[in-house]
Design a protein around this nucleic acid. Structure first.
Length: 198
DNA sequence: AATTTGCCCAACCGCAGACTC
DNA sequence: GGAGTCTGCGGTTGGGCAAAT
């Protein structure tokens, strides 16, 4: 299956200018965000359709939020990534105004490092727990609980996860953002608590 | 002051599923 | 039904900038 070519031969590359943005926005206003090859041609831009689509989706689209990802948003990204992995478009779909590209960048530049640090801390903590246990220091139930929680939290959350409900591809047929958020939050917070508390 | 390093983010690339003819 | 095209996705790259040396 051949993909739409979008190569150096297709012309202009690199950062978009304000003038290009205006031209693109004007055409999309008239014919809507579809048939990107035609949009690119009509806008008179030396860009391929794919490039135009990306610019629209990540920058020009109305209601785009840019920068300043809040703590709540970060929490949600962490939770969703734990459940879904690198399915950025699904994650972005549950963060109004955020794009998959922005979330992916945010993850790669900040959160992945944050998680690595947490994992490192957990490793150290685990070694300390083993040490205490082996020396009969009786840290008791608390430590055992912590350990159980760490190892089982994620599996539990997966087991109770209803993918059809949460990620119906049609947003119209799926739950509203508010419903979705409250269901999601009540679903299972255990692994997330572990991530933050340890 | 000049250079290096690291971070952030916009944009590009290749792939694959969906769609059209 | 099959070939060609369009669209959307996730991974990667590279330029700009600020901080560190």
């Amino acid at each position: 299956m051949a993909s739409t070519l979008c190569t150096k031969r297709d012309g202009n590359r690199g950062a978009w200018t304000a003038e290009e943005d205006q031209k693109l926005a004007r055409v999309i206003e008239i014919q809507g965000p579809k048939r990107w090859k035609i949009v690119a041609a009509k806008a008179g831009l030396n860009r391929c359709g794919k490039s135009c689509r990306l610019r629209w989706m990540n920058y020009l689209r109305p209601n785009i939020k840019r920068g300043n990802i809040s703590d709540q948003e970060e929490d949600l990204i962490l939770r969703l990534h734990k459940l879904l992995g690198n399915r950025w478009s699904l994650i972005a779909g549950r963060l109004p105004g955020r794009t998959d590209n922005e979330i992916k960048n945010y993850w790669n530049s900040r959160l992945s490092k944050k998680i690595k640090r947490k994992e490192k801390q957990n490793k150290i903590l685990r070694v300390q727990i083993d040490h205490h246990r082996n020396n009969g220091m009786g840290m008791g139930n608390i430590l055992n609980r912590w350990e159980e929680g760490t190892s089982k939290g994620y599996e539990n959350s997966k087991a109770s996860f209803n993918g059809d409900y949460f990620f119906n591809s049609s947003r119209e047929e799926g739950p509203s953002d508010q419903e979705w958020m409250s269901k999601f939050l009540e679903m299972d917070a255990s692994w997330f608590k572990i991530l933050h508390d340890t």
